[in-house]
Computed example of a mutant assay.
Amino acid sequence: MMLKTNHVLIISIMLLGIGVLTYIYYKPSIELASYVGDLSKPKVDVCTEECLEAVKAENDQILKDCLVNDRMSQEKAEDKVSNLETKNENQRDFEAEILVLVWVWPFGERFPFDTCEPLFGVKNCRITDDRSQYENAHGVLFHLRDIYNQIPTLKKLPRFPLQMWVWMNNESPDFSPRLSDGEDLFNLTSNYRRDSDIWSPYGRVYKATEEEKAFQIPKKDKLVCWIVSHWDDNFPRVKYFNELSKHVNVDGFGNHFGRRISNEDYFNVIRSCKFYLSFENSIYKDYISEKVYNPLVLGTVPVVIGPPRDNYEEFIPQNAFIHIDDFKTPQDLAEHLKLADQNQEIYESYFDWRKHFVAKLGHPEEHACRTCEYIRMNRNFRSIRNINKWYFG
């Protein structure tokens, strides 16, 4: 009996040892999830200690990613708020009224204050000639011909850092005064030249409305006309006219021809001619004056002396005018004009452009209105250091 008891004890000790060794070398797995009494649920996978370490590392990375994403989301949200505030501020600035002070009326001729929006689509622009508003003005318009001899007085005016002084001029360099000791006064230029800050040409060609496309050539009773008062035998246009008039009849009007006409008659005369001599008094790039746009508006073909044809074609359809450079001599031009007079098809071809476009004269207030537009749209610093060099070369 004793022997049997010892055997049982020995076996129990051995089993206990085996259990301890098993526990040491094969630790029981820890379930990540458990279930009680519901055998219908699938048993969840278990994870070893190495697995737990990996899970912990992955969770740490997830946590870090979450924190980073949270910071990025917060920064994006702050950026959105900032951008929205900036956008709102810009919108308020864009909608704010711009005040332009006309220092002196160009050649003493006033222009309307309230046409910027209906004529040019420029909103919230206020134009004034009240110099007491000088301190509040965003821009001050100075007409060159009226202020060129007032530079010492202008230099005594207080200058405000954000206020723009605008040099305005639509005369060619040959008929414009140079500034003396005023080279650093101005921030912007407003001129007929395309490279000026504020482009204000003598006229423009626009897309025609359906009503404007129904254009009819006015009745004509003259072949070639010219209205001129400023006469100088040394002008290229005068020399060319003297040769041209030897080969074709030109009806002359104006002081030089002793046939002064009123403003109303001026337009009626141009309208009554098949061709009009749009001869500029000086030749410079982009200098295309009302001498060209008036005939285009009134239904007459301009014959031009001025910059090269390529320059005209930047602004005017190529078949809307005749350039003297198209012909070798004034006599050749005269023969062509007489041919077009006899051939209606040739003459009407000069109006094909009117099926799509219409010409309109510029307005004196465009300088002021476009100044409003420029100041509203451009916030960059601008200064003209040598305006004489820019304009006179």
Rank of each mutant, 00 (worst) to 15 (best):
I11Y: 12
L15K: 09
Y26R: 11
S29T: 15
I30W: 13
E31Q: 13
L32K: 07
L39P: 00
S40F: 06
T48F: 13
V55S: 12
A57Y: 09
D60L: 12
I62K: 07
Q74N: 09
Q74L: 09
E75F: 05
E78R: 13
K80P: 10
S82W: 12
E85M: 00
N88P: 00
L101S: 09
W103N: 05
R110K: 15
L119V: 13
V122W: 14
K123H: 14
R126P: 08
H138M: 06
L141A: 05
H143P: 12
L144Q: 14
T153N: 06
K156N: 13
R159A: 11
R159G: 05
P161L: 05
W167Q: 05
E171A: 08
P173I: 10
F186K: 01
Y192R: 10
D197R: 01
P201E: 04
T209E: 12
P218H: 03
D232E: 11
D232P: 01
N234H: 11
K239Q: 15
S245K: 15
H247G: 07
D251Y: 00
G252E: 06
I261W: 07
S262C: 00
S262H: 00
F267D: 12
C273D: 04
K274C: 04
S282Q: 08
I283T: 13
V297F: 00
T300G: 01
P307N: 05
Q318V: 11
I324A: 06
D325S: 00
E335M: 07
K338T: 09
D341Y: 03
D352I: 01
A359P: 08
K360V: 14
P364C: 10
C369S: 06
R370A: 07
E373I: 00
R376W: 02
R379T: 04
N386F: 10
Y391E: 03
Y391A: 03
